[in-house]
């Protein structure tokens, strides 16, 4: 999570490419750009301009793909992207959207993509059920707060349970924690 995410911008427009580079220069992202879809990609995320007729092939790289749009666009086509940013978005909105894509897809925990909670997620869930704050959990496991938040997002995504009371109930039902220990 702390690694810099490499972003590849694919657009035939230099205005768009350079504009995005200026905005992203102030962030944790490392940016590269191309005018058309290459054969191989060395990046963590792709930003593509859907005016490119070849844009469909970017999905074959198995990476999150974000559409960069500059005009009205067919909603159904846009639904296949991980996210859509518009060149009219405020820079902070754009960056927030891209961060969301990264935190949704990347995780240092190798089991995080599975259906079941990973061992680390279970540990964090137990802490949450015991009422610990993100800061305290981060300190306990020597993680960044951002990583703890990512784990918590993953726990909610997998279980469908959002509230702390609900997560506590889940932890008890799964036998991860004793009902008496949270009194």
């Amino acid at each position: 999570m702390n690694d810099k995410t490499k972003i590849l911008i694919i657009s035939p427009s230099e205005i768009i490419t350079n504009g995005l580079k200026v905005i992203l220069a102030r962030t944790e992202f490392v940016v590269d750009s191309l005018a058309d879809v290459p054969a191989t990609v060395d990046a963590g995320m792709i930003l593509v301009d859907p005016v490119l007729t070849s844009y469909n092939s970017v999905f074959s790289f198995g990476l999150p793909v974000v559409a960069v749009i500059h005009a009205a666009y067919d909603e159904r086509s846009l639904s296949q992207f991980s996210e859509v940013i518009s060149i009219y978005d405020q820079p902070q909105v754009m960056v927030r959207k891209l961060r969301k894509v990264v935190s949704g897809s990347a995780d240092s925990d190798p089991l995080a993509d599975g259906k079941e909670l990973s061992p680390r997620e279970k540990e964090i869930l137990v802490c949450v059920a015991k009422g610990m704050l993100n800061k305290e959990i981060a300190y306990k496991y020597n993680l960044s707060i951002f990583t703890v938040m990512t784990h918590r997002k993953n726990i909610t995504a997998k279980t469908g349970i959002k509230s702390i009371a609900g997560l506590t109930a889940y932890a008890i039902l799964q036998g991860l924690i004793d009902i008496e220990s949270i009194k």
């Binding site: 469908g160 349970i161 959002k162 009371a165 609900g166 109930a169 889940y170 039902l173 799964q174």
Partner: peptide
């Protein structure tokens, strides 16, 4: 506030975890 969220949590607990 979070009323809808809590009821969905209850649904998931009953649907998935009993």
């Amino acid at each position: 506030g979070n009323i809808g969220e809590n009821i969905q949590d209850l649904i998931n607990l009953l649907l998935k975890y009993i």
